[in-house]
Design a protein around this nucleic acid. Structure first.
Lengths: 226, 226
DNA sequence: GGAGGTATAATTGTATACAGATGTACATAT
DNA sequence: ATATGTACATCTGTATACAATTATACCTCC
């Protein structure tokens, strides 16, 4: 018996729409309709519909009788999400330190090396690698949650982290946060490798606190809405 | 413009399937198919399909190329969910104490009075009101999250709480937990009414801790699987 | 000129048809 | 008897048709 389903059109539409909303291609208040989207994307309404329902479930859009409104995320939402993560991420990191395997550590190391490559490249030639750095940041945290070995932690933290994409990219670009963040990741990695739960927990919590401070202070300059 | 959509067939199917899974009408490992369900429920595959996708998103079922497998929740998942709630519920309660309105307090009071009615009825005539008590428990916590005034807290805590339905019912029936839980709710309510964030936070955290202890110890007797 | 009603266009909700994929059972060959 | 291949039944994924609902524009009446 095959274990996994192949990637359906609906999956692709979902990913694309989620990305387009979190990166503000579709902005807060924009109206999406199944028909227009299906024409634009060149597929039937069925997979578009499925994607929109999943976005509704994630509270990223809101469906009305007449169409689908983009909700997005407010500054207050962001503050609250960081507050929650500050109290949970450390627990997940502690679990990961106890449970992570050598393969897990290897994967994480790969990500960090790539991240360091992009950060130093940006520093040396001034190129914009914020897209890549942001994705690697996502990967790092996703693995951290995954290696916690707990479905509950993964399901709680991953959605919170996903919704911050847009803001993380802004924070990475404006200011020296990228290097700090990388070094904090490396610290967490070392704690995981040493299977030191207490240290991992402390560093992860501190990492979230700093990231939150950085992004929240940055956004008051960058983004004015709400 | 109408603000809300009317309740669709898909919504109803979703609610029913979610309830049937969390109350173990459909058990862990059971296979559901869109076709069978649509025949059984007397609707087309479309709304059934939509409901199943939403359940998949909540990690309550898992879709394979051949059908949909019921996942359910393990003892370890339950433990982790309580651990997370222990670290977040107090924050939500503190927010609620600061933000709750008089209407909100009134609604909460109604729920608590009804809950007390059922608990005392059970105590006096031995009738089984666990279904009602469980629902009122859900209502109380849903309102607490709602009145936190934070989308992030609502979205984080409500799914965790929903998934515990089955276990809460068992805990209510077996043992004197119902009365304890009610009294703890009433204590939280008084803290909210006094707008005492610190006390509300402390009591809510303690409430979660006790509920978790109770359920986790009970389930080792009641439920053997996993 | 404004208010109200009606026709129309657009959009969602549901059902159904069809294609592709996959497991299953049975037959056949070794 | 076992392994293999093939036909079939089943299920999902997608497209499409149709019904119900709702906003909008226009037209009429005052």
């Amino acid at each position: 018996m095959r274990e996994h389903k192949s990637i359906s059109i609906a999956d692709q539409i979902f990913e694309q729409l989620e990305h387009d909303i979190l990166t503000e291609k579709y902005k807060r208040g924009d109206m999406l309709t199944e028909q227009k989207l299906s024409e634009t994307l060149g597929v039937s309404r069925t997979p578009v519909r499925e994607a929109l329902r999943r976005l509704e479930q994630e509270h990223i859009v809101h469906e009305t009788s007449r169409g689908t409104v983009v909700i997005g995320i407010t500054q207050n939402d962001l503050r609250d999400m960081y507050e929650i993560r500050m109290h949970v991420e450390g627990l997940a990191a502690a679990r990961a330190a106890a449970n992570i395997s050598d393969e897990g550590l290897a994967k994480m190391k790969d990500i960090l090396e790539l991240q360091r490559y992009y950060v130093e490249k940006t520093k040396s030639d001034g190129s914009d690698n914020s897209e890549n750095i942001k994705d690697l940041d996502s990967d790092f945290h996703r693995l951290l949650y995954l290696y916690s070995g707990s479905k509950a932690y993964l399901e709680t933290l991953l959605p919170l982290h996903k919704k911050m994409i847009k803001y993380r990219k802004a924070a990475v670009r404006h200011g020296g946060r990228a290097l700090c963040s990388l070094e904090e990741h490396e610290g967490i990695y070392r704690a995981l490798a040493a299977h030191d739960s207490e240290l991992a927990s402390k560093l992860a919590t501190e990492h979230v606190r700093r990231a939150g401070d950085s992004i929240l202070s940055k956004n008051t300059e960058i983004l004015k809405w709400d």
